[in-house]
């Protein structure tokens, strides 16, 4: 068991190096560089050349990469251009907001999709199943930004219920802690709702097909033959087993959640890492981009690893084999 985890942990290193090499070179192939942001009638090209060399941009790409890697090994992700602050600090500042948004969404996605998936499987082929299926396909088909804008129009403009942007109301800066928390929660409702509507569908489908498979197995038939109630059969026996593969799928949903969070953060002005990242790509802030890619990849890999470990804890059959 520990050996397995250890082995997986070691395998993270080449993965991360691969990810960093690819992203580093892809970014530096891009035409244009960060100094291009300073265009203004009064900035001379000589000034730009000077700033370029201050930032070390006049070295060849592979040399720049090794500089970067050397610093990462020392726990230093570099200093972001223009903003002139350590990348680690910038990310640390933004990551809680992103994680909060992702974790809350994930929680509600699970809350919605587990009962829906199980019900759908149980009523397979009948009206309820069809309704749930169509709903989940709808969820999968809606462009996220479109949904976000529609929800904002409805809840913020038409009904005036919820704030449309940001994470907290600056006017409430002096209120008590519970007041502040409630304020954050209100700001979270719309982004979370959007992510849940987009995200619940896929998981519901997986749980449905997992449960259908389980329901066909002998031990379920046996349980039913024993005369256990349908409820017990469904939620005690079937659910527990059909949830196993869901753990793996959860690990794989993390990149999707990231991608979703990027766009959602931009629309709802959520002060998270995604927005920082998109801004960094557009302004060619190499150290910042590298830092964010690196950290998000690390999170994705760790998420998968955690799912893997959970899975082997939950299902003793695969404890020893390493899975690809």
């Amino acid at each position: 068991m520990y050996k397995h985890v250890l082995k997986r942990l070691v395998s993270i290193i080449p993965l991360l190096i691969g990810v960093s090499i690819i992203s580093f070179f892809v970014m530096h192939l891009a035409p244009g560089d960060p100094t291009a942001l300073f265009v203004d009638p009064s900035v001379s090209p000589h000034e730009l050349a000077r700033i370029r060399s201050n930032w070390g941009l006049d070295h060849p790409v592979h040399v720049q990469y090794f500089f970067w890697l050397k610093n990462v090994l020392r726990g230093d992700l570099g200093t972001a251009y223009i903003i002139n602050r350590p990348v680690t600090e910038l990310i640390a500042e933004r990551i809680p907001a992103t994680l909060l948004l992702m974790a809350t969404s994930l929680f509600f996605i699970l809350l919605v999709s587990i009962p829906l998936g199980v019900l759908s499987a149980y009523k397979k082929g009948r009206g309820l199943d069809n309704i749930i299926s169509v709903l989940s396909f709808l969820g999968m088909s809606i462009p996220s930004f479109w949904l976000a804008l529609m929800l904002m129009l409805l809840f913020s403009v038409k009904l005036g219920f919820l704030p449309s942007s940001g994470m907290s109301d600056p006017l409430l800066a002096d209120t008590s802690l519970p007041g502040k928390l409630a304020d954050i929660v209100r700001h979270m409702v719309l982004p979370v709702l959007t992510m849940v509507i987009i995200g619940f569908a896929g998981l519901t489908r997986y749980i449905r097909s997992g449960t259908i498979e389980v329901l066909g197995q002998n031990y379920i038939k046996a349980a039913r033959a024993k005369g256990l109630s349908e409820r017990t059969v469904l939620f005690k026996h079937a659910l527990r087993n059909s949830l196993l593969p869901v753990i793996t799928i959860l690990g794989m949903t993390i990149p999707d959640l990231f991608a979703g969070a990027f766009i959602i953060e931009t629309i709802f002005a959520w002060p998270g890492m995604g927005r920082l990242g998109i801004g960094a790509v557009f302004s060619r802030n190499y150290p910042l981009i590298m830092g964010i890619v690196f950290i998000s990849s690390l999170l994705i890999i760790l998420g998968n690893l955690a799912a893997d470990v959970l899975y082997s804890v939950a299902d003793p059959r695969i404890r020893t084999e390493g899975k690809d």
Binding site: F107, L111, S156, L159, G160, F161, L162, P163, D169, P170, L171, L172, A173, D174, T175, L181, A182, D183, V185, R186, V189
Partner: peptide, 29 residues
């Protein structure tokens, strides 16, 4: 689960009507 949901609900209901709840006297945004 119940707690999380109820926090969400109460936050939503508590604010119906007007969005702004903080004091804004003397503040320019």
């Amino acid at each position: 689960i119940l707690i999380v949901i109820s926090v969400f609900l109460s936050a939503c209901l508590g604010c119906s009507g007007s969005i702004k709840t903080g004091k804004n006297i003397g503040t320019l945004t």
